[in-house]
Simulated scan of single mutants.
Amino acid sequence: MAINPLFPYPLYLVISEQDCYPQSWLHVAEEAIHGGVDIVQLREKNETPARFLEKAKKLKRITDRYGIPLIINDAVGIALEIEAWGVHVGQNDCQPLEIREKYGQQIQIGWSLENLAQLDSEQMRAVDQLGVSPIFATKTKTDTITEWGISGLCQVRNLTEKPLIAIGRMDLDTIESTWQAGANSIAVVSAICKSNDPRERSAQLKELLT
């Protein structure tokens, strides 16, 4: 796969404090960036809005230092308050058209793809990139419908030109085949967040994408 100029971020870190425990999640984020992570998403499902905002500000200071785009999961208001690069929303969150109509081009919009019918939705007009989730079932994301697999990802690739972000058990054993199947970006959680050396693991993963 060539790097997609619309989404030139092949290695995508999805991070939360819980996923990194007992390591410092901010340390993991910075080490992963040193190792080659191109873009970071903060996903905190169980935090209060005030605590989520506090965490987002702390992470933004790190991503800004290295010129790395930051995406906020679900919380559109927080994403706009901290001037994040993007927001990623699912089926049960604020929908892409609503975000676009309210905020115009202020923010990039990612949308979780759970079934092929979504590709015909009017929401696609407002979507900048699609999260294909999960490629393989994973314990870190349990609220999904379709396990796409490599064949499903290939099918999606043939049906849309939108940048595709593959997530779901992405590790050293799976990312190369996923990349070759048409993903424009590989979103990693546990393989980096649970690693004893997130910098080295990020470098190993990045090498498989370049």
Rank of each mutant, 00 (worst) to 15 (best):
L172C: 02
K55R: 14
L172E: 13
E114K: 13
E47W: 13
Y66Q: 04
N4H: 06
R157A: 12
K57N: 06
E147T: 14
S16P: 05
S195Q: 05
L26K: 13
N73S: 12
K162F: 07
Q108F: 10
R100E: 02
I15N: 01
V189L: 00
E31W: 03
Q105K: 15
T63C: 02
E122V: 13
G36Q: 07
P22Y: 08
N4D: 14
L26T: 09
A187H: 03
F7K: 02
G77R: 09
L172K: 04
D197H: 12
F52K: 13
V14A: 12
I107K: 08
D64C: 10
K141A: 08
A2Q: 13
G35D: 00
N184G: 08
E31Y: 04
Q95Y: 02
K55C: 03
G168N: 01
D93Q: 09
L70D: 01
A191V: 04
E98F: 00
D74I: 05
W111H: 12
T140W: 00
I15A: 10
A79P: 06
E122Y: 04
T144H: 12
P10F: 01
I145S: 12
E83Y: 10
K60L: 11
V37P: 09
L70R: 06
I15E: 00
C193T: 15
P22H: 12
Y9K: 03
Y66A: 07
D173F: 08
Q204N: 11
V14Q: 00
A181C: 09
L153F: 10
G110Q: 04
L209D: 03
V87C: 09
D197W: 00
L80R: 13
E147N: 07
S24E: 03
L26I: 10
Q108E: 00
T63N: 00
S121N: 07
T178Q: 05
E54P: 01
E122C: 03
K162M: 06
G86Y: 05
T138F: 00
L53Y: 15
D19A: 15
A29T: 14
W111N: 03
S16L: 09
